[in-house]
Design a protein around this nucleic acid. Structure first.
Length: 508
RNA sequence: CGCGGGGUAGAGCAGUUUGGAAGCUCGUCGGGCUCAUAACCCGAAGGUCGGAGGUUCAAAUCCUCCCCCCGCAACCA
């Protein structure tokens, strides 16, 4: 079995409903997954939910619910959210599933047998009302930084993972595999951090019960992060199907928010090294969204509801905006003006209108049909258009390798703009008046539709539904396929269906 | 001197690695076209590249100092 392209989102903590941050990560992974499938690769695209930990236990109690029904409810909400955004995940893992319990137990045992787990004491300043430990330097005037109350020194028995042992191996890893942590500035941060030296990691808790029990010591539950990271192995079949596991693991890319880069770029590879398993190829930390210039928070009430907005502007345009507005990796600002401007400029004015104006002419001039065209005519305006396309396939592939989604879209829009310019330069409406529908006019249309076809294929990962619709209008009776991303493959004779404008301009 | 990111036209950004005519998108103004979704195409205005000093024939780009904004500072998922 050929190795699958394995791509993951983090598993989302189910103490709240999904928001734009979750959607952003998940859409990005979906775009990448769809592109790899477009290339004909076997893809395993995983998302899921993280359902253990004290916070969830408390949240459930607050809702007068038992933990299990509470997480069932939220896991359902996440699944619905992804289906509403047309996410094509191949699996949805929940850390409360049986397969995950088996996987965690197996992993714990391996690492334990390798001598990297030991029992020790975890100590620190404990705030009883907040049920939280703080280190010396976290205290504010010797009191709890959250509530300001007195803290007391507590010691708790805990299992530890020998993270410190992996300080040097990790540094070697970052040095050998330049792309292991992306983007570059995150890599620098991680290296900086690890260079200070790592402490062993407390990986069990005994003050609450909602978690996976430590093998042979049921008084302890496994620390949620240690549990959560292992989802990536579980879903690949770690504890259940050795052959399948080998065909999926290691992950090609873990896409994560910048706040959890450390867990994925430091703890996770150290855990895998300990278990002597192959390491993921890349951990990519993307940025955060602000809302109209301000940090999003529930108390400010400025949280964007992507799902409500998708109903207004469409799911595909929403996905387009998320991927186009900000270079992946950087922080970005979400504004309604920005949304409207980008969707109007790129999708309605440039791309949608290109299809509309050309199809409209063909409808009037030749009953929407194209039966003959000079595919290789050598007018200057045509050469210019072809030059834009030259090398584009390779550039787009390169951008995908770096998860530079906005640059992929940039490439596509340059081609679309080029086609608009090509139309203006060749002015088929004028030629038609002078000479009727001759080969030259037909050829002009052919090449414009060719650009539309190419754009539709390249846009497929971002806007699967609309892309399919456009291809149908061009009477391409075939699913989008990356091998068709070459010039001159629009089949003729053909009929072009004009239809309604594919993107409407947004007002307000 | 805790660490990192950033300060480039009205807005959002690229360019800084390998110094060498200041660029892109949106907006504004003027023109063209009239096939199209007030669209598309062309042109113009608009910047002391955060500030000061230095290196250099030449600096947004290298060096020094300063100012401002934003994150992070491990067990918080």
């Amino acid at each position: 079995m050929a190795k699958s392209f394995y791509i993951t989102t983090p598993i989302y903590y189910v103490n709240d409903k999904p928001h734009i941050g979750h959607a952003y990560t998940t859409v990005a992974c979906d775009v990448l997954a769809r592109f790899r499938r477009l290339q004909g690769k076997e893809v395993f695209f995983l998302t899921g939910t993280d359902e253990h930990g004290k916070k969830i236990q408390k949240a459930a109690e607050k809702n007068a619910s038992d933990s299990k029904s509470y997480v069932d409810f939220y896991a359902g909400i996440f699944q619905d959210a992804w289906s509403a955004l047309d996410i094509s995940n191949d699996d949805f893992i929940r850390t409360t599933q049986e397969r995950h319990y088996k996987s965690v137990a197996k992993f714990w045992q391996i690492v334990n047998n390798n001598g990297d787990i030991y029992k020790g004491k975890y100590s620190g300043w404990y705030c009883v009302p907040c049920e939280t430990f703080f280190s010396d330097d976290q205290l504010v005037d010797g009191k709890c930084p959250d509530c300001g109350r007195e803290v007391e020194w507590m010691e708790e028995e805990s299992y530890f993972f020998k993270l410190s042992k992996y300080t040097q191996p990790l540094l070697d890893l970052y040095n050998d595999k330049k792309n292991f942590v992306m983007p570059d500035f995150r890599r620098n941060e991680v290296i900086q951090f690890v260079s200070q030296g790592l402490k062993d990691l407390s990986i069990s808790r005994s003050k609450f019960s909602w978690g996976i029990k430590v093998p042979d010591d049921p008084g302890h539950v496994i620390y949620v992060w240690f549990d959560a990271l292992l989802n990536y192995l579980t879903a690949a079949g770690f504890a259940e199907n050795e052959e399948r596991f080998r065909s999926i693991w290691p992950a090609d890319v873990h896409v994560v928010g910048k706040e959890i880069v450390r867990f994925h770029a430091i703890i996770w590879p150290a855990m895998l090294m300990s278990a002597k398993l192959p390491l993921p190829k890349m951990v990519f930390g993307h940025g955060w969204w602000t809302m109209e210039g301000e940090k999003m928070s529930k108390s400010k009430g400025n949280v964007v509801d992507i799902w409500a907005l998708s109903k207004e502007v469409g799911v595909d345009p929403m996905r387009y905006f998320l991927m186009k507005a900000v270079p992946f990796g950087q922080d970005g600002d979400f504004s309604h003006k920005g949304l409207r401007d980008i969707l109007n400029a790129d999708l309605a004015n440039d791309f949608g209108n290109l299809l509309n104006r050309t199809a409209s002419m063909l409808e009037k001039y030749n009953d929407s049909s194209l039966s003959d065209a000079d595919k290789y005519f050598d007018k200057e305006s045509y050469i210019k258009l072809r030059n834009i396309f030259d090398g584009m396939k390779e550039r787009i592939e390169k951008h995908y390798d770096n998860l530079s989604f906005s640059f992929v879209l940039e490439e596509i829009m340059i081609l679309v703009k080029g086609a608009n310019k090509f139309l203006d330069e060749t002015s088929p409406w004028r030629s038609f008046k002078e000479k009727g529908f001759d080969l030259e006019v037909a050829s002009t249309f052919y090449h414009v539709f060719e650009v539309i076809r190419l754009a539709a294929i390249a846009l497929y990962p971002f806007m699967p539904t609309i892309s399919g619709d456009v291809l149908k209008r061009l009477s391409v009776n075939k699913e989008a396929d990356w091998s068709d991303f070459n010039w001159g493959l629009l089949p003729i004779p053909c009929k072009i269906e004009k239809g309604e404008p594919i993107f409407k301009r947004l007002d307000t």
